[in-house]
Design a protein around this nucleic acid. Structure first.
Length: 265
DNA sequence: CCCGTGCCCTGGCGGC
DNA sequence: TGCCGCCAGGGCACGG
């Protein structure tokens, strides 16, 4: 499931392969994913640069920003000919190159925003800062206002952008904070530790090429950060710090893994 | 403001 | 073997 680190890896891959080129044509194999109107606006647009914010990939074009969200299983592949996978839904013909957007569950989205309106409209309008840019004092202040579990707050993209279910569990484990602890009860030191480990874990994941739980890939390279996960998906396995068996529970509808001994309320 | 629920979708897995 | 039903998840709309 692509989170901030995986999205950064995909963005780098796209910059290396399609930056500076022009979209010549598009095939839409799954109609819901992109309208004919959007397609027409994309044709003849030059790709200036690819950036990211949180989990969003922002493709800067001549007149627009194309915003791609991979959700759970979105991937980009360069195809060597017009031979496609059953889950290739959008095909971009970019100069001499064929780029396929592949997404098993079809959850990914494309939004087109007029140039310089990027933060005036959804989906980026209310997006918060990334862990690298957020002021820990601001994060602490915002968290103190809310009675939601800290796990749920870490997933709120308008509060802090880029953290998904996997890294939220890993961050709280490193910060030794119980995922059900309410925002209002988080201490200043805990808020600082959460931001510190968010940056640390995401940076390490970016350096190692992203995480794979089931299917994350980019340029044919499968990330390996998952080998280093401490708690996520480790139900009933011994905690690497104290040996206590890892617990799991639903928090805000999301499966959450934690060590009930290391992570105090 | 806050919360919970449903929706979108497919593949993998448990149960029988 | 195969079929059925459930689960996973990010963001958003909706209702209370």
């Amino acid at each position: 499931m692509p989170e901030l680190p995986e999205v950064r890896v995909v963005s780098k891959f796209l910059n290396e392969n399609i930056k500076g080129k022009t979209i010549k044509d598009i095939d839409i194999f799954y109609q819901r994913m992109m309208s004919e109107d959007l397609k027409q606006k994309l044709i003849n647009q030059k790709i200036e640069e690819i950036k990211t914010h949180g989990k969003y990939i922002i493709i800067n074009l001549t007149d627009y920003h194309l915003i791609s969200h991979l959700r759970m299983e979105g991937k980009y592949f360069i195809r060597s000919g017009k031979v496609f996978d059953k889950h290739d839904h959008i095909i971009f013909y970019i100069d001499d190159l064929i780029l396929a957007y592949n997404d098993t569950r079809k959850f990914g989205t494309f939004d087109l925003i007029l140039k310089d309106q990027l933060y005036e409209e959804l989906p980026l309008k209310k997006l918060g800062k990334e862990p690298f840019d957020i002021d820990p004092a601001y994060f602490y202040k915002e968290v103190k206002k809310r009675r939601s579990p800290i796990k749920t707050l870490l997933l709120r993209q308008e509060l802090i952008a880029g953290i998904g279910n996997i890294y939220a569990d890993e961050i709280l484990f490193m910060a030794k904070v119980h995922p059900t602890k309410l925002g209002v009860n988080i201490t200043k030191k805990q808020a600082e530790e959460i931001i510190y480990y968010a940056k640390d874990i995401l940076n390490k994941a970016i350096k190692s090429g992203g995480t794979t739980i089931s299917s994350f890939e980019s340029d044919g390279h499968v990330g390996w950060f998952s080998l280093k996960l401490n708690v996520h998906t480790k139900y009933n396995e011994p905690c690497k710090v104290c040996g206590t068996l890892i617990d799991k529970m639903k928090i805000g509808g999301r499966t959450s893994y934690f060590c009930k001994k290391c992570q105090r309320k």
